[in-house]
């Protein structure tokens, strides 16, 4: 009885220690969650602040009212042009990139077409600092007279997005066993039909994820947009940066536009978190 008592005491002691430990860990985690959420909360709250509320001490941490006049004013300040152009560039670009990458990813993943050399070429493009490409691309675009056009921007985004999408889709195809296609081929399907009817439906989730990443990358991209466009094309990040650099920064309007700008990225994280690591590490982590 005594021994049992001692054991019981020890067990309770351990249990208490475990509980305290758990509580501390929860507190620490809460702290980190607040830390990472705060700047995003600040964008959100800023979008609903009135003019004077930005220059108020102490800072205002809660919105007094949820009025959308910052948004409507932001749209007239170039915001609507920014949203439209960003949508045009990102949508068309994504569509083209995905179609091209689907085929190349299939060729490379299923047939090892191009072998190691092509793999190396595609992968190394992913590491390229975009700034290096800016100068030569600018001169080429100038020569072709397409500076400040949708074509120039969509084309330059190929450099970032095409290798990315090829690599990701190639990985998704390599995950599928080859046998499922062999069966279709034996049934007399053509190569293309076997791909379209058998393989493609199976990698649709992968294609959708790749497309969303490509879309968000194009939507968020700033450097190329800054360099290759002037007035005909003005994507959202460019509009934002000009508003920031302008005289008397319009904080409220900027915050409202910022909130619009982060929507695609936030949605991607919220709904496709499962694929986030895989996408960002180009498939190196399947997690």
């Amino acid at each position: 009885m005594n021994r049992n008592d001692k054991k019981y005491q020890e067990f309770r002691k351990k249990e208490r220690k475990r509980k305290i430990n758990n509580l501390l860990q929860n507190l620490l985690l809460t702290f980190f969650v607040v830390l990472f959420a705060f700047p995003i909360y600040w964008i959100f709250i800023g979008a609903f602040k009135q003019k004077g509320e930005f220059f108020h001490y102490p800072p205002i941490f809660l919105a007094n009212q949820f009025k959308f006049d910052n948004f409507t004013r932001a749209l007239t300040l170039g915001g609507s042009k920014g949203v439209t152009d960003s949508l045009i560039v990102a949508c068309i670009g994504t569509l083209l990139v995905i179609i091209l990458a689907l085929f190349t990813g299939y060729g490379m993943g299923r047939f090892k077409c191009g072998g190691q050399n092509l793999s190396f070429f595609v992968l190394s493009l992913l590491f390229l600092p975009p700034i290096i490409a800016v100068l030569p691309l600018f001169i080429i675009f100038k020569y072709l007279r397409i500076v400040d056009s949708y074509i120039a921007l969509i084309w330059s985004y190929f450099l970032i997005n095409l290798p990315f999408a090829i690599w990701l889709i190639k990985g998704f195809i390599e995950d599928l066993p080859e046998e499922i296609e062999s069966a279709a081929l034996v049934d007399g399907y053509s190569r293309f039909r076997a791909f379209w009817k058998v393989t493609f439906p199976l990698i649709i989730p992968g294609v959708v994820v790749s497309a969303l990443f490509v879309f968000v990358f194009a939507w968020n991209e700033f450097l190329f947009a800054l360099m290759f466009t002037r007035s005909n094309v003005r994507t959202l990040p460019v509009v934002l940066s000009e508003l920031i650099g302008g005289h008397g920064i319009q904080w409220g309007e900027l915050s409202a536009l910022s909130l619009v700008a982060i929507i695609p990225g936030v949605l991607l994280v919220v709904f496709f978190q499962k694929y986030l690591v895989r996408g960002l590490t180009f498939g190196a982590v399947k997690g």
Binding site: V33, S258, A261, V266, L268, V270
Partner: peptide, 18 residues
Amino acid sequence: ITIIALPIMVTPVVLGFN
């Protein structure tokens, strides 16, 4: 996890401004 992952995809320009 979702909240902690949010910063990754925030538009860099927005980040700078914010």
